[in-house]
C-alpha cells in the first residue's frame, strides 16, 4: 500500500504491536508458563529444595498416589469447597439482594460489610486465632462455656471454624458481585410482578433468583476454583491441624515440599491441583451453557 501511494507510512506500523505485548509476555512466560511445565517436570524428579535435582521417574507419583494422605487431602479439599460454597452462596445472594435496595441505611451497612475484603488472610486468621483461644479468647472472657471450647484443637470444630472464617472473609466479595447482578435486573419485571400482586418473597424466587443465573455461575466458579488455593488462611489458622483434619491439597503441597523437603511429591500434588482447577473451571463453564456471556475462556 505504501509502495503504491509513495507515502512512507511509519514503516509498517502494525509490526510494532507484537513488541508492545512482549514485556508482559516475557514475564508471564518466565514466571507462570514455564513454572507450569516445570511443575510437571519436577514431579518426575527427586529434589530436597536445596541440593541437586535428580530425575527419578515415577517414584514421586508412586509415593503420592499410594499415600493415604492424598485421598484424605482430596476429601478435605472437597469438603471445604462444598460446605463453604453451600454456606456462602445463599448468604451472598441474600446480602447482595439486600444491598441492591436503594435505601440509605443499606448503603451505610454496605460500607461496613465490605471491610473484610480489605484485610489480608493472615490478619484475619491471626485475629480469629486469638479470638477463639480457649483460655484467652472472647468466649473465655465472657465466661460463656459454649463459646470457650477448644475451637482449633478438635477436628470437627476446627473444620467448622475454617468454613466460618472463609465465609466471613469471602461473603462480602460475593455479595458485591450479586449486588451488581441484582441491580442489572430490569425493573419492569418487578413492576409487572407487583401489579400481579406478587409479594416480596414470591418476587425473589420467581424473578431475582432466575435472573441471577449467570451471576450464580460466575460467583460459584470463583468460589470453587478459589477454594483450591485457600492456603494462607488455613495455614495460619490451623496449619492443617489438628492432626490432618484441615489439611487441604494446597497445604499438603506446601508441607511436603517446603517443610519435609520432598519437592518431587509436592510437585505431583501441585499437578493434581492444576488439573483439578482446570477441569472444575471447564465443568462449571459447561454447566453455564454457551451463552453464559461471551465467556473469557473462549481461547482455551
Amino acid at each position: 500500500m505504501s509502495a503504491l501511494t509513495g507515502h512512507p507510512r511509519p514503516r509498517d506500523a502494525r509490526g510494532v504491536l507484537p513488541w508492545l505485548a512482549a514485556p508482559a509476555l516475557v514475564l508471564f512466560v518466565g514466571f507462570a508458563v514455564i513454572p507450569l511445565f516445570g511443575v510437571f517436570a519436577l514431579s518426575f524428579t527427586t529434589w530436597d529444595g536445596i541440593g541437586a535435582i535428580r530425575p527419578s521417574g515415577l517414584t514421586s507419583w508412586r509415593k503420592v498416589l499410594t499415600n493415604p494422605g492424598l485421598p484424605h487431602a482430596l476429601w478435605v479439599t472437597f469438603l471445604v469447597m462444598a460446605v463453604s460454597w453451600a454456606v456462602q452462596t445463599p448468604l451472598s445472594i441474600l446480602l447482595g439482594t439486600f444491598l441492591a435496595g436503594r435505601q440509605c441505611y443499606r448503603a451505610v451497612l454496605g460500607v461496613v460489610y465490605f471491610i473484610p475484603l480489605m484485610l489480608s488472610s493472615a490478619a484475619i486468621a491471626i485475629a480469629y486465632k486469638a479470638l477463639l483461644d480457649p483460655n484467652f479468647g472472647l468466649g473465655a472472657g465472657l465466661k460463656i462455656h459454649a463459646l470457650s471450647q477448644d475451637w482449633l484443637g478438635r477436628p470437627g470444630l476446627a473444620f467448622g471454624v475454617v468454613v466460618f472464617v472463609v465465609s466471613w472473609q469471602f461473603i462480602p466479595f460475593h455479595s458485591l458481585i450479586y449486588q451488581g447482578g441484582v441491580q442489572q435486573i430490569p425493573k419492569s419485571l418487578y413492576e409487572a410482578a407487583q401489579l400481579d400482586g406478587a409479594g416480596r418473597i414470591r418476587q425473589f424466587f420467581s424473578i431475582t433468583l432466575p435472573q441471577l443465573k449467570y451471576t450464580i455461575i460466575t460467583s460459584s466458579t470463583l468460589m470453587v476454583v478459589g477454594s483450591l488455593t485457600f492456603f494462607d488462611l488455613i495455614f495460619v489458622l490451623t496449619e492443617g491441624g489438628p492432626g490432618d483434619a484441615t489439611r487441604v491439597l494446597a497445604l499438603d503441597m506446601y508441607k511436603r515440599g517446603f517443610q519435609a523437603s520432598l519437592m518431587g511429591p509436592a510437585s505431583a500434588i501441585a499437578v493434581i491441583l492444576v488439573l483439578l482447577g482446570l477441569s472444575l473451571a471447564l465443568l462449571l463453564r459447561r454447566l453455564g451453557g454457551r451463552d453464559a456471556g461471551a465467556s473469557q475462556l473462549e481461547g482455551v
Binding site: A41, V225, A250, M253, G257, S267, A270, V274, L282
Partner: peptide
C-alpha cells in the same frame, strides 16, 4: 489465549518451580 488460560489455572500451584 495464553493469558486467558492463566485465568483458569490456580497459579499458586506453580510456586515450586517459581
Amino acid at each position: 489465549g495464553l493469558f486467558l488460560m492463566g485465568l483458569a489455572i490456580p497459579l499458586q500451584a506453580t510456586v515450586i518451580p517459581v
